[in-house]
Structures are given as C-alpha cells and as structure tokens.
C-alpha cells in the first residue's frame, strides 16, 4: 500500500522534473537558435510576420564582421573587422596576464599565512565587485592624461585588473586541493620551494589554470562598459562596435546577430575543451579538503 503510493509520488515528481526541464531548455536554447537563424536573414526577412523559418540565407552580416565580400563597404561595416582584431588582442593578452598574476597570488594565499592576508583576499575580491562605471568616472580623466585613452594597451590593463580578483580566488581553490605534503616532501629532499611550485604543484593544477583562463576569457572577451567609454575610434572592441551599429538606417540586427555568433564560437570551443575542469574544482576552496 505505502509502496504503491510512494511510487506514485515518485512518478509524479519525475514527470514534473521532466516537464520543468523541457520548459527551461526551450527558454535556454530558443533565443540562441533565434540568434543563429537571424544572423542569416536579410533585412527583408527579419521583419516579416509571421517569422520565417525557411528563407534564402543572406551572409551580409558575416561579410561585414570579417570585412569581406559585397557588404564590406557598406557604411555600417567600416572598421568592424578591425574591432574583431582588437577584441582578440586585448582579451588574449589580458587573460594571460591576469591568469599569470592570479596564479602567483592564489598560490601564496593558499599556502602561506601572512599578516593582512584576510584583508588582501577581500581587497582582491572587492575589485571583482567594483562597478565599472564608478571607476570609469576617474579612468576617463586618468587615461586621457596618461595617453592610454583609445589604446589597446589601456584596455589590456583594464582586462588584467578586472579579472585578477576572480583568477586569484579560483586558483586559490585549485591550489587548496593539492596536498601541502607535496612541497614538504620536496623541501625535505633538498629542493627549493620555487622548484616545488614550478615543477610539482603547477603541473597538478593545469586543469585549474585552464578553467580560470576560460572564465577570465569570457569576461574579457565580452567586456563592454570599460571599452565603450575608454575607446573612441582606434581601439574599439567588437561588442562596442556593434552596439554603435544603430545609425541612420536603424539597428543593424543582422550584423549584431552575426557578430554575436562570431563572438560565441571561440568561447564555445574553449568551454567544451575545459568542461571537465569546470565541473571538478570550481569550488573556490570553500568546501575544505575532501
């Protein structure tokens, strides 16, 4: 009697969960599908009612993003390809440096106790909490004075500062997962701490470094607030460039959708490659050692 009732409850719960999952999947995947579909639509097909699922694909959005083909010379695609190049340079350089510094800081925070450690950790985290627009009020002046305004170098600096906090915290979590005995044994055997760090500990957190880089890359690659205020012509990144693609002809939806697809591809590949590490150690070291 009780048995059949619990199995009824189980069955209902299972159907309910399945239903919710289906609803969520539609909500989650639908817009992505619509983004990809719309990136191939011509101006005519974008606004037709009812919306078309089948149409002759139009590549003008992609052409203007990559600066090739017929759409290359249209007013809205001038400089879009340059902004893609800027995006790549700024986010690759910014991510590598942020991860490098964050790894060093994360290691020290995981292994040593020093005065002011708690304060340092909070200060580092607080930079992640900082609203970009707040510091931008001053950056705007500072960058102009230092000649950093509208330069890639300035944006790289911003990318480092914006991601170093997250990198430090995630890396600390991964270092916490490596037993302290690794260094202790190395030191007992006459190796230096530096050797133990570079040759023994670092290889053990390779996956963690990849996961950290993945996260920092997402944020640097998609960053908008800083880049939109600190660049004017030369150093514009792709997210900034496309947001300005609403000129006299109205918003260039096809171009925005195509840029969105182009922007997501590198992240998607990266993400798929590091998925295992994202699922293993993204616990910031707050769960203790298990």
């Amino acid at each position: 009697m009780t048995n059949s009732r619990t199995s009824m409850v189980d069955l209902v719960t299972r159907w309910l969960i399945l239903g919710l999952l289906i609803v969520y999947t539609i909500y989650n995947v639908g817009p992505i599908f619509w983004l990809i579909l719309s990136s191939f639509k011509s101006r005519m097909d974008l606004f037709t009612m009812p919306p078309k699922l089948f149409f002759t694909p139009d590549f003008s959005g992609y052409q203007s993003v990559f600066g090739v083909g017929a759409a290359k010379d249209s007013a809205s695609s001038v400089g879009v390809f340059d902004s893609l190049v800027n995006s790549i340079i700024v986010s690759v350089a910014g991510t590598s440096l942020a991860v490098f510094f964050g790894t060093l800081a994360g290691y020290v925070c995981s292994r040593f106790n020093f005065r002011g450690k708690g304060d340092f950790m909070f200060f580092v985290l607080s930079t992640r909490m900082l609203p970009p627009v707040a510091v931008l009020v001053f950056y705007h002046l500072m960058f102009a004075r230092l000649g950093l305004a509208d330069t890639r170098f300035g944006l790289v600096l911003v990318a480092i500062f914006a991601n170093i906090g997250l990198a430090t915290w995630i890396m600390k979590g991964f270092f916490d997962g490596v037993p302290k005995e690794v260094e202790q044994i190395a030191i007992v055997n006459g190796y230096t701490r530096m050797y133990a760090f570079t040759r023994l500990v670092l290889p053990m957190v390779k996956g963690g470094i990849a996961a950290t880089a993945g996260f920092c890359f997402i944020f640097a690659w998609n960053e908008f607030a800083f880049a939109s205020i600190l660049t004017t012509t030369q150093a514009k990144t792709l997210p900034v460039k496309i947001s300005a693609a609403s000129g006299a002809t109205g918003i260039e939806w096809t171009q925005i959708c195509a840029a969105g697809v182009v922007l997501i591809i590198p992240v998607l590949i990266f993400f798929y490659l590091i998925r295992k590490h994202l699922l293993m150690g993204m616990t910031f070291g707050v769960l203790g050692r298990r």
């Binding site: 995947v29 992505i32 997402i218 690659w221 997210p239 969105g260 922007l263 992240v267 993400f271």
Partner: peptide, 9 residues
C-alpha cells in the same frame, strides 16, 4: 551558451 555571450549582444 547564454553566459558565453556578451551582455550587449
């Protein structure tokens, strides 16, 4: 995928 997109997009 949604979190990989730029907030502007």
């Amino acid at each position: 995928m949604p979190m990989m997109l730029s907030p502007v997009v």
